[in-house]
Nucleic acid binder design. Structure first.
Length: 501
RNA sequence: GGCCCCUUCGACUAGCGGUUAGGUCACCACCCUUUCAAGGUGGCGGCACGAGUUCGAAUCUCGUAGGGGUCACCA
C-alpha cells in the first residue's frame, strides 16, 4: 500500500508554526515510505477566511522545503484542493448519509440552542445537542421545510449505545462511549460542511492512508470513525502528534497570545528555514543515534513513528535561536550565508564595494550573530564611515590619543598589509610602550568601530583595509582635539542600526 | 465539571527489567583572550507520588496527584 499523507491548514491568519510542525511530520513520513504528501486548504469557514493567508501558507511550505505533491497551486488527480470548491461533493455524500439514516436534518434555531446550552450549564449537565430533531419523521421534516423552517443543518445521528473504538498508532486503542458522542453538525446551514464531514470525505477521496495531526483531534476522532463506517469506507491510520506548548507555567497549547506563532515572523527575524525545520524535528522526535543537527533528508532517512514521544514539547525560543546560530556559523557555507544576509543588509541601506569584502565581514561576524537580522547592528561600522562613538568609546579615545597618533604613522608606513604583519606591528608597538595590550587596542577599537566590543583587532584591521583604518584613526584624532562637527549626544540605537544623524 | 490524552534535570530528549540515569539548550565557574562572541574543560540539576509484579524497576500493572486537550452552524 502506497502512503499518502496530507496537511490541511485553515487559511485564517498568519501561517502557523503548528502547521509547519505537523506539515513536517506528514512530509517526512510520506517521503520515508516513498508516498505522496498533499496540501489541502480547509476554507469552509467563510467568516474567518483570508485569501492572503492562503497564499502565505503556500509560500511558507516552499520556504521550509515541504513541497507537496498535490496542492491547490500545482493541482493533482484528486482536486480541487480547496474545500470551498468541493461543495457539491460534500452535499452529495451528506445526502447519501441522510438516506441511510446516519445524518438527520435539524431545524432548531440558534436561540433554542443557546437557551439549551445555558440550561445545561446551569444544571451542570454535559453540554451538547439534546436530539430535539433527531427523530423527526420524513413527513415532519418535510413539513418543517414546507413551513419555511429553512435553513436547516444536517447532524450526525450518533449511536446512543455501545462504544466506538479506534486505534491511535502511538497510543494504542482508544475507546469512547457512544453516549458521549454528540450529534454534531456535519453540514452547516450555509451549505458548507464542518471540518468533520469535509475531512473524512476528502481524506477518503484523496486516498489519504495516514492521518498525522495534532493531539487536540483525538476527541473528535470517534465522529470521524463513525462517518467512515457510515460511508462503508476503510479508515486511515491515525497518528496523533503531541501538541506544541507555550513556555508558561502550565504548558498550555501553543498560542498567539503567549508566543510568536507566525512562521513569517520568524523568517523576518532572520531565522533560517533549515534551523526551524531542524528545531521542529527535535520536538517530540529524536534521531536513533542521538544526533540533534539534521536536515530534511537525514530525517526522512531515519524516520519512524516509534521514536515519537508523547509529552507535549515546549516551544523554546532560546533553543530555536541556538539552532539558528549553529547554522549561521558552522553549517552554512560563507557564500550561502552571504546570500541569506544580503537582503537584510540591503534593507538597512548598507552597500559594499565588492563581494570579498562582504565575505570577510561575515566571516568574522558570524560567530557573533544568532539571527540574520543581527548582522545589521553588528556590522554597522563596516558599511559607514560616519558612525558615531558611544560613551565608552569616547572615554577610550580620550585616553589613547598618543597611541592613536603613533599607530597612524606606523600603519601608514606598513608595507605588507596582512594579518601577520599587523600582528607584529601591534605587538612591537605595545612592547615599545611598556603597557598592556588593552591600553593600546581599546582606543584603536574605539577609533575603528565607535564601540567598545568588537571582533579581534587584527582581523578587523585586516578586513577594513589600510585606507579605511588610516581614515578612521584620523577622524578619531580630529574628534579628540576638536570634537566632531555633529558631535551631538547619540542614542545607542543610532549606532546599532547604523543610522547616523 | 464529563470524556480523552500525557508525566525522566528549568527546557528539548536518550532510556524500552540489571546504567554511578546519558546528551543538548539555558545557567554558573574556569581556560583561551586586547574587548565581545565563538571554542575548550568542569559544575548545577531529574525518573510526580503510593502500592503491586519481580531476585531486581525510570522501564510492567493498578491507584492517586498534577498538567494538557475537548465538549461551536472554528478548524
Amino acid at each position: 500500500m502506497s502512503v499518502v499523507t496530507r496537511i490541511a491548514p485553515s487559511p485564517t491568519g498568519d501561517p502557523h508554526v503548528g502547521t509547519a510542525y505537523i506539515g513536517l511530520f506528514n512530509y517526512v513520513f510520506a517521503k520515508k515510505h516513498g508516498g505522496k504528501f498533499i496540501l489541502r486548504i480547509e476554507d469552509t469557514d467563510r467568516e474567518r477566511y483570508n485569501a492572503d493567508s492562503e497564499m502565505r501558507i503556500f509560500k511558507m511550505m516552499h520556504w521550509l522545503g515541504l513541497n507537496p505533491d498535490e496542492s491547490p497551486e500545482i493541482g493533482g488527480p484528486n482536486g480541487p484542493y480547496q474545500q470551498s470548491e468541493r461543495l457539491e461533493i460534500y452535499k452529495k455524500h451528506a445526502l447519501d448519509l441522510v438516506e441511510s439514516g446516519h445524518l438527520y436534518p435539524c431545524f432548531c434555531s440558534e436561540e433554542r440552542l443557546l437557551k439549551l446550552r445555558e440550561e445545561q450549564k446551569r444544571r451542570k449537565q454535559p453540554l451538547g445537542y439534546d436530539g430535539f430533531c433527531r427523530n423527526l419523521s420524513k413527513e415532519e421534516a418535510g413539513a418543517c421545510m414546507a413551513a419555511g423552517k429553512e435553513p436547516y443543518v444536517l447532524r450526525l445521528k450518533a449511536p446512543s449505545e455501545g462504544e466506538t473504538v479506534f486505534r491511535d498508532e502511538l497510543r494504542g486503542q482508544i475507546r469512547f462511549k457512544n453516549s458521549d458522542i454528540r450529534d454534531g453538525i456535519m453540514l452547516k446551514s450555509d451549505g458548507y460542511p464542518t471540518y468533520h464531514l469535509a475531512n473524512v470525505i476528502d481524506d477518503h477521496l484523496m486516498g489519504v492512508t495516514h492521518v498525522l495531526r495534532a493531539e487536540e483531534w483525538i476527541t473528535s476522532t470517534p465522529i470521524h470513525v463513525l462517518l467512515y463506517r457510515a460511508f462503508g469506507w476503510d479508515e486511515p491510520k491515525f497518528i496523533h502528534m503531541p501538541l506544541l506548548r507555550n513556555p508558561d507555567a502550565n504548558k498550555s497549547k501553543i498560542s498567539k497570545r503567549k508566543l510568536d506563532t507566525s512562521v513569517d515572523s520568524y523568517r523576518d527575524q532572520g531565522i533560517l528555514p533549515e534551523a526551524l525545520i531542524n528545531f521542529l524535528g527535535n520536538m517530540g522526535w529524536s534521531m536513533p543515534d542521538g544526533r540533534e543537527f539534521f536536515g530534511l533528508k537525514d530525517m526522512i532517512k531515519e524516520f519512524s513513528i516509534e521514536r515519537i514521544s508523547l509529552g507535549g514539547p515546549v516551544f523554546d525560543l532560546k533553543k530555536l535561536r541556538f539552532f539558528n546560530a549553529r547554522y549561521l556559523r558552522d553549517i552554512l557555507s560563507l557564500e550561502d550565508l552571504a546570500e541569506r544576509v544580503k537582503p537584510f543588509l540591503e534593507a538597512a541601506g548598507y552597500d559594499w564595494d565588492d563581494e570579498d569584502y562582504l565575505l570577510d565581514i561575515l566571516d568574522i561576524l558570524k560567530s557573533r550573530a544568532e539571527t540574520l537580522t543581527e548582522f545589521v547592528p553588528h556590522g554597522a561600522y563596516f558599511f559607514h564611515e560616519d558612525f558615531s562613538y558611544d560613551e565608552q568609546a569616547k572615554k577610550k579615545l580620550a585616553a589613547g590619543q598618543k597611541y592613536l597618533e603613533d599607530l597612524e604613522r606606523e600603519f601608514a608606513l606598513l608595507e605588507s598589509y596582512d594579518e601577520d604583519s599587523i600582528d607584529d606591528l601591534i605587538h612591537d608597538y605595545v612592547q615599545s610602550q611598556s603597557v598592556g595590550m588593552g591600553k593600546v587596542l581599546q582606543p584603536l577599537r574605539a577609533a575603528l568601530t565607535g564601540v567598545s566590543n568588537s571582533p579581534s583587532m587584527t582581523e578587523l584591521i585586516s578586513v577594513l583595509g589600510k585606507q579605511r583604518v588610516l581614515k578612521r584613526i584620523g577622524r578619531a584624532l580630529s574628534y579628540i582635539t576638536a570634537g566632531l562637527p555633529d558631535d551631538k549626544p547619540q542614542k545607542p540605537e543610532a549606532v546599532k542600526t547604523g543610522a547616523v544623524s
